[in-house]
Design a protein around this nucleic acid. Sequence first.
DNA 1: TTAGGGTTAG
Length: 697
Amino acid sequence: MTAMCSDGRAIHPYSASAAVVGRAMAFSPSAPSPSTPPPQLPHKLDTIRSMDELKQIQAAILKTPSPQSSPVLAKILSFCALSSPHIAHARSLLAHIDNPSLLMYNTVFHSLSRSNRSLVSTSIMFYEDMLEKGLRPDSFTFPYLVKLFANSQALQAGEALHAHAIKMGLDANVYVRNNLMSLYAVCGEVRSIWKLFDGFPERDLVSWTTLISGYTKAGLAKEAVEVFKEMLSENLRADGVTMVAVLSACAELGDLELGRNLHRYIGAREVDMDVFVGNALVYMYSKCGDVDSAYQLFNQMPVRNVVSWNSMISGLVNNREFKQALELFRQMQSEGIEPDAVTLVGVLNSCASLGALELGQWVHAYINRNGIEADGITGNALVDMYAKCGRIDRAMEVFGGMAHKDVYTYTSMIVGLAMHGRGEEALDLFAAMSSAGVKPNEVTFVGVLSACSHAGLVDVGLRHFESMSAAYGLVPQMEHYGCVVDMFGRAGRLDKAQDFISSMPMEPDAFIWGSLLGACRKHGDVALGETVAKRLLDVEPQEEGAYVLMSNLYTAGNRRSDGLRMRKAMRANKVRKTPGCSLIEIDGVIHEFRKGEELHPLAKEVYAMVAEFGRRLNIDSSQDEARHHSERLAMAFGLIGTRPDTPLRIVKNLRVCHDCHSVIKSVSRLYNREIVLRDRYRFHRFKDGWCSCNEFW
DNA sequence: TTAGGGTTAG
């Protein structure tokens, strides 16, 4: 009856020391009896601090006439799942009890299944012990074990267990089966889920729900919705959990019509609208592009938790409502709701898009202060935020400090370097990524190819383009073809660009033609430009791009009247213009300027400042069509509103025009300011009259 | 002592 204790000492359960007995006696002064357990023991177990304390209590139990039925012993066993030395202790304890009950083993499995650690082999060990003791698993044993395996996504072990359940004749039990289905769902084994669902006549709502969410997790949202419809046709009534599952399938599909119907079903069938259902609805509406409904629902929710806020914030982010996302975050703060890592990722994405460096830095500090791991998605979001806010140095720092770099980490960094015109470094990093064994994806190649394009590395870029399919099995998409066209175009190889376009396996879109037309403008090829402009107008007749580029091209080629003709045609055809918009963050507040607009409270001062640097640079304002472009307004505001040594960071939604580019260069020298401008495609860092892009953008 | 649910990037 001697067993090894976890720390290696032999213990004998029936020879507890006098001190232990004395202590135990204090708990139970009267003669111990199984029907009246010592009243203080269970309470004591909740606050137990050391193994010694536990052993003392245990020794007292084992002295009772039938220790195996003591509820305190069961408590000790569940307590033991907390750490591996304790688990070893539980095992030795079970080993020297004469007739441990199935309940005791189930207790152990239950507590093991609630642990966050991977305990697959441990539980198999207990399971084998149990069989050796001549005990047979029941319909409780399997669900615990299956859940345990599901926690670790241990598919093979799960399948073995499934086989054993069949052998024991327990696979028909609906609990066992539903558990197995969810294990297969976690592992993405759709066929196995279906077989379990389809193979037995007895199904309940849980079986249907598990099938629906299994399909959704496996990316088969359409099938999931079909299953839901079939369920309804069998006159089953969905509850909240089922609705959450099917709403998440609906969100994947982006099917707003279906989503509204599901919402109506919830109302009509009086499905309990708990916080899960509310969150799923908010997420569904925002995923389907109906942010207003999402927001309305969010505001009506009687109970909200951090996931509700996260769903709404990330919904706004997905719909590119970044300013609103940040406003909502501020509201969340003022209501005293603690953000978690998911919240902060949404906030960081918004900061990245808006160029809100100060808030982004605040989030970084918050992450550090609260011990949130800056690895994984959070770290990736930080890298992206710093890179997009113009602090490529900080992006590198965070990147360097990350222990686990995945394809997103590398891609964010590569894209960031490319945007900063640091093409060679981007390519070095791409090489390092391969050495680290991280496989690139399509987006990585957008970064690599645009790095080549911005650095003028045509041949290197072409090699990478070809390696996409040859070495990585990736299918180049429109944006990759666009990068290559851009690459040829910038390098002035317009004929090559044309050849390349005709070799494309798909119809070129507006970006492809726009890129080639931009190259025609840059290299003054009016004849080719006219052909390309026609093609661009075929693809998108209502957009301004072709008109503006052609008008500029004519004007540059001394064909002013043709240029004016384009402007007129543009007005006549009611062409849609994307208004230029620039943002600048000062003291954590984001200020927005649109071309020619005077809505800002300090508009008067801003326009006066624009006029001032126009004068000082000797620009004839009547000839300066671009004088009220949004980036100049933002720059003027920055000059007024910050100390003289503060760098200005401006984010623009369109590509910066040539006139503004040269004005900003001059302003950087005149006012001795560093000005960092992110336009639609890349960063420009202006200093002492120079720009980091070297006129290459 | 038994199962099914919502939010995270380039």
